[in-house]
Nucleic acid binder design. Sequence first.
DNA 1: ATGTTC
Length: 398
Amino acid sequence: MGTSQKEGLASSSDAAPIHRFYSRTTWIEGAAEEQLDLVSRLAGVSHVAAFPDLHPGKYGPVGSAILADRIYPQLIGNDIGCGMSLFALDLPARKLRLDKAAQKIRVLEEPWHGDPGACLAADGLPTDLHPVALGTIGGGNHFCELQELGSLSDDCLLAGTDIRKGDLMLLVHSGSRSLGMAVFGTVLESFSGLDLDSTVGRTYLAAHNDAVRWASLNRRLIAERAARALRSDLRLVADAPHNLIEEHDDGLLHRKGAAKADIPLVPLAGSRDALSYLLVPKADRPEALASLAHGSGRKYDRRSMAGRAGTTRSDRDGLIRTSFGGHVICEDRQFLIEEAPNAYKDPNQVLDDLRTSDLAQSVATLKPLLTFKKAVNRELAAARRDKHGRLKDRRAKR
DNA sequence: ATGTTC
């Protein structure tokens, strides 16, 4: 927990109710519970929902939804609009050559060469809104994953959709890149919250809303780039942001790593070596604040992963393969280790908690075939070579 | 999370 939050956040004596949608045996870090208690005491907070993927964040617990009478930008942080978008490909799994697809999807390592102005305008955004990063995935836990849809025992729910067992899907996890960071940078010290009726509050929320739409467009462009490389059409199945503020009748709803669930279908991402799930949220659970878990949730923070994954050569080699016979494309070894599957909780426990809490039904499994995370930035690599006359060896720094 | 960490 940052000291800045303890010092800077206004707190009231009476805490808002916290609804926890996980069992007593679910693994939740103590620091996350402390953050949950802290946000429940923030001035103007009326309700908090906590999901089984809960884990500590920089300013607040990731995996929570918070209803307040004012705007708390630091609860959302820099990746405004980050989320998961799921697309169905018009390409049957039986026609897929995984090794060839792995080469084709590398188109995502290049900058996007489309027409940003036209895409931004078509989505009602200013044509000059941060075009430079559009169509790119970014780093950290962001990815573009090719998956095969599998059915569950209850086929009735799938029958209500236009997706079927064996369909190839693209799940894109990305956000607003450096745009959201710039927007957050304008209100960094707003620890006591912003009034919606103030100029700074309105200005922030307008810029935030643009970043949310920019992030959604970004995920679609990433999927379109991948689909084009695979010579396939695609259609949107779900667009589920999990890091944003929404104006609701009863207040400002902050989702911090909690998926927007007032939509028909919500993807629940597993780690790259676990199944993801497609969920149908239950509509009649107001205490869940129209939200759901957004994934497995981290078990270990990034810094502590150095000794937990990639310590031996065979372990490192294993990081680019999955137990489903799939591949991981990520040339940044740091990311491979920080985002190793064992950095995450068991998505099946998260799913169990959501079902036990009666928040959602699962309608399909999503098996990872190809996970594109990040390729080496060639320009940056070249710059480093020029400066040092050789490639930096990260190991030498330790 | 981030044209990051010279």
